[in-house]
Each structure stands twice: as C-alpha cells, then as structure tokens.
C-alpha cells in the first residue's frame, strides 16, 4: 500500500516536472496539435493548389507575354520611326534638288528675257540713233542753207552799203566760194 502510494507520488512528481518543464513534451496535447496541423495543411494546400498558385502563375505568364509583346511592338515602332526619318530625309534631298532645278530654270528664263529685252532695246536705240543722226543732218543742212542765205543777204547789203551795185548772181557765187573756202 505504502509502496504503491510512493510510486504514484513519484509518477505524479515526474509529471509535474514535465508540466513545469517543456510544454513541448506534454504528450497529452499531441493529438490535438497533430489534428489541427493536418486540417490546416490540407486547407492551405487546397487553397494554394486550386486557387492561388494557378492564378499567380497565370498572371506572371500573362505579364511576361505582355512585356514581350510590348518590347516587340516598341522595336517595330522604332523601325518605323527610322524608316520614316529616312523617307523624310530622302524627300528633303529630293525637294532640295527640285528647288535647285527650279531656281536654275528660272535664272535661265530670266537671263533669256533679259537678253531679249536688251537686244530689243539695242535695236530701238540704234533706230533712235539713226533717226536722230538723220534729224541732226537735216538740221545741219538746214542751218547751212540758212547761213548761206544770211551770208548772201549780208554780203548784198554790205556791198550796197559800200556803194556798190550788187549783182545778185556774182554775190551768190562769191559767197558760195567763200563758204567753200
């Protein structure tokens, strides 16, 4: 009887030590912990494998695809921009050449016009000069006649004034000779 009690006390004491020691070694809580652990793990596994992971995987794949597509599109746009720039430069060069051609043509045309106008003007000037020369000759001729007449009249008057008798015909001959003189 006594020994039994002692044994029980010892067992009790040992258990109290375990209780006071590590709760991790309190085996009476093990079934509870293991049960809830398995429940939690199964639930986590189901949530992850059925819902979360496929969704995240799909999102990541979609993002990767989008990024790849966007990069390709960017590359394409870049190519387009480069070709557009090239086309622009080509057009610019062509336009410059065209402009230069037009300028040269216009210059040639103007030159032609100027030459034509100059020629015309020269012809006109020549005509005018000839006419003027004719006119001057006429005037000169007119002036000579007038001078002859004036000289004759003057000579006649002079002769008359000096008391001579002026024969019109000899006066005229004398004046003409003097004028030729």
């Amino acid at each position: 009887m006594a020994t039994e009690t002692t044994a029980q006390d010892v067992a009790q004491g040992a258990h109290e030590v375990a209780k006071a020691g590590m709760p991790q070694l309190d085996f009476s809580t093990f079934p509870n912990q293991i049960f809830w652990l398995l429940v939690t793990l199964v639930l986590i596994y189901l949530v992850l494998s059925r819902i979360a992971l496929p969704r995240i995987g799909a999102t990541l794949a979609e993002r990767k695809g989008t990024i790849t597509n966007d990069l390709a599109a960017a590359e394409e746009l870049k190519q387009k921009a480069v070709s557009a720039e090239k086309a622009y430069n080509d057009a610019l060069v062509r336009a410059r050449a065209e402009a230069a051609k037009i300028v040269a043509e216009a210059k040639a045309e103007i030159q032609k016009d100027v030459a034509a106008a100059t020629a015309k003007a020269e012809v006109e000037i020549a005509a005018k000069t000839a006419e003027s020369e004719k006119h001057i000759a006429e005037i000169r001729a007119g002036a000579m006649d007038a001078v002859t007449e004036v000289a004759r009249d003057t000579a006649k008057e002079l002769v008359a004034a000096l008391g001579g008798k002026a024969d019109a015909k000899s006066v005229t001959e004398a004046v003409t000779a003097a004028l030729k003189g």
């Binding site: 939690t40 986590i44 949530v47 992850l48 819902i51 979360a52 992971l53 969704r55 995240i56 979609e62």
Partner: peptide, 21 residues
C-alpha cells in the same frame, strides 16, 4: 494555425484576385 491560414488566404488568394498586369 487558423490565423496562419487566413494570412495565406489573404495574401495569396485574395491578393492575387485582381490578376493585374
């Protein structure tokens, strides 16, 4: 353990629901 499960559900199941790029 339930709180751990809730955190995982909140971050991984609810957090990924938008599937945003």
């Amino acid at each position: 353990m339930a709180l751990a499960l809730l955190v995982i559900v909140a971050v991984f199941a609810i957090g990924s629901r938008g599937r945003a790029i």
